[in-house]
């Protein structure tokens, strides 16, 4: 676990730098798994960044992962289907939501987790100076939706369906 106020406002570079330094410190690895993107920034860069900093191959947006002898075979989601990619291990793979459902924790698992002591590292423990940012946030705002919905009237749902079609014809959408 990497925990420090210096990590709090990290950009992608700092996050990937910290994670790759921690992975190196943790020792040998074959496969690093990351999510596709963070739910706040939706940037989708951390996995690629870790791979670059560790100098290992990276496969993004996996929907299926099969490790074989010294290699990993991945199905990568594309806009028209998928690609099959093979990469030598060690490698970084980022997974897409198609890869599977989260497991629900079992009582046994929860009990076992209570006995585990997390290892917590600070920037100095992994030999980095966190806190810098390459990307600056200049402005954050909520866009306003100007659209005003016109609700279609009708005595019953069937009439509403008719009237909706008539309306769309009237305004030349159909």
């Amino acid at each position: 676990m990497l925990e420090d106020p210096a990590f709090a406002d990290a950009d992608t570079y700092t996050t990937a730098e910290a994670l790759s330094a921690a992975i190196k410190k943790a020792g040998q690895f074959d496969l690093i798994l990351c999510g596709r993107e963070a739910s706040d920034t939706n940037a989708g860069q951390t996995g690629a960044g870790i791979a670059e900093l560790l100098g290992v191959p990276c496969v993004t947006l996996a929907r299926k992962i099969e490790p074989t002898e010294g290699k990993v075979r991945v199905e990568r989601v594309t806009s028209t289907g998928y690609e099959v990619i093979e990469a030598p291990l060690p490698a970084v793979v980022t997974v897409s939501n198609e890869v599977g459902e989260p497991r629900y924790p079992t009582i046994k698992g929860i009990m076992a987790a209570k006995k585990k002591e997390p290892v917590v590292w600070k920037p100095a423990d992994i030999g980095i100076q966190a806190g810098g940012r390459r990307v600056k946030l200049n402005r954050l705002y909520q866009p306003v939706h100007e659209e005003k919905c016109e609700f279609i009237a009708g005595e019953n749902p069937e009439e509403m369906g008719d009237n909706l079609a008539l309306k769309l014809r009237e305004v030349k959408v159909l």
């Binding site: 609700f151 749902p157 069937e158 369906g161 008719d162 909706l164």
Partner: peptide, 15 residues
Amino acid sequence: RYGAVGDWKKILPAF
């Protein structure tokens, strides 16, 4: 821009 409130199973076939 345009909306219909109700059960789609009834609205859609008519639409």
